[in-house]
Design a protein around this nucleic acid. Sequence first.
DNA 1: GTTCTAGAAC
DNA 2: GTTCTAGAAC
Length: 280
Amino acid sequence: MIKCPFAGLSATRAIINPSDCLIFRQLFWVEVQKRQLKTKSAPGIKFREDPAGDHGRSRRPREPSEDKKCDREAPSPKVAKQTEKQSVPLQKEEATKSSESFGHWSQGLKTSMQDPKMQVYKDDKVVVIKDKYPKARYHWLVLPWQTISSLKVLRGEHTDLLKHMQQVAEQMVQQCPHKSSLRFRKGYHAIPSMSHVHLHVISQDFDSPCLKNKKHWNSFTTDYFIESHDVIQMLETDGKVAVTEGTSELLKLPLRCHMCRKELPTIPALKEHLKSHFPS
DNA sequence: GTTCTAGAAC
DNA sequence: GTTCTAGAAC
């Protein structure tokens, strides 16, 4: 049995065949639309201002449990709220086996994807969570339940799974209330910091206080970001994903606007420049 | 991945 | 003097 992720839809369903999944998904998308429209402030989405006005620059001792989420509120449980532990299909047990690996920061996605409060969509193959530190107005991660550490271990047999991830990613775009005014990209970081394969679905405004440095910027605006379509194509033609040597050097490139290619000297200057392309 | 901070850049 | 970055630590 799997629990419906919506507070307002508390009925449980057993996912026993694909048509059940479809019904479940339809309920999901309807609910997401309703809730996003209800909570949205038109026309643009404003990030909450840092109450201290210092954008996290204040110096104070770090507490282990602290989780500032780059000066924003905690991820809203509005979209997907679950109060009961659910059974998770496929390889959860396998992932849980190595419990000590969950402690390290690089394993954080494995923890987040299992957290019902983080999940905005799930089916028998994948789960979608909001990026904990979104680098744009909309930034989701699509993750397979199957434990796949990185692009390096992907083989031809994973092609269908990656196609499904891309399909779900596109559904996330389509349910976005601002899809007509924003451009989205779907892709993978060539050399991700976090373990567990994850597909980024990110709006191209890059309007976020969590976008703070050159690495953030270049990881989404250079070839460090590999289109989902290209990864799938590599798997189909070569049976593996080739990451070009020297890709990590792309992170050090000068800051360049992804819209007009103008080079900007600093992150603050870049952010100011982006306002001309994406007025709030 | 993020936070923190020394020191570079202005 | 302040702003900003880069790299260590986590």
